[in-house]
Design a binder for these strands. Structure first.
Lengths: 131, 131
DNA sequence: GGTTGACCTTCCCGTAACAGGAACCTTTAT
DNA sequence: ATAAAGGTTCCTGTTACGGGAAGGTCAACC
């Protein structure tokens, strides 16, 4: 399978697939003409990575997950630990964003939003008030 | 005020302050020895940017906000619109993260997390199932 | 056989917002 | 004189690719 077909199958852009080869994540064979040749197994790995990425895992985490996936003697505890850490990071991000949203939302609501210059948003940024 | 003092006052790292000069966001005078010399007004701008950044605005948004702040004839509507767009982006990110969290959370809960290899998390990534 | 057009290759730059560190200068204190 | 604590510029690295140039390959069509 050429890279285009692999891209179609996995839903990943060809650029991304080449990048994954660059960093040694999924390394295909080469045909005699130099084209990358993806096996079903390669595609499977690419799709695996694509789904892990969709769950927010970093590419390096994906490398670990892929290694665990291929290691028949893995302990599910190792996978769970990684996923749990990732969940914690997600929670932290959500919390940060919610905090930002709450504060900014209040500011936006208090802003008239008309053609006058008075603006509580700018005032807050200027003075650091917390109202 | 040298950059160190400005950094202490604004809570921004010196590296960040130099970067803001590089991109023309806050440009200080120079002393005869070549050192950057920050006025109170410069510090005020830096602090303004720091707070806007803390609310999640991009540096380019900060540039716009700073320009609006300095424009006495601004319309608060322009500020409000920008903030509202930013709020919408924040909401989208929160939503994405919550989606990830929900899915991954379910997977983590269904994983035994012991020394056996069976792992619903890996199975999901391998097969794309949605349980 | 020639020529399109779609596909592939490598390589290099750009992204956002800085952090780290090297090599070097200035100021202040001892 | 020297050492410490500041400052300066400049270059590299970060994350995960996207865009695009310059050129090779392949299948089809006239």
């Amino acid at each position: 399978m050429n890279i285009g077909a692999a891209a179609t199958r996995t839903g990943l852009p060809a650029k991304t697939i080449r990048y994954y080869e660059d960093i040694g994540l999924v390394t295909p064979e080469r045909a005699s003409n130099g084209y990358r040749s993806y096996s079903d197994s390669d595609c499977h790995k690419l799709a695996f990575v694509g789904r892990a990425r969709a769950h927010g895992f970093s590419v390096e985490d994906c490398r670990t997950l892929l290694a665990l996936y291929e290691d028949q003697s893995r302990a599910s505890a190792d996978v769970k630990r990684l996923a749990q850490q990732h969940l914690t990071e997600i929670e932290a991000k959500i919390s940060d964003l919610q905090q930002m949203h709450a504060t900014l939302s209040r500011l936006v609501q208090s802003c008239a939003g008309d053609d006058r210059p008075d603006c509580p948003i700018l005032s807050d940024f200027a003075k650091g008030g917390r109202g």
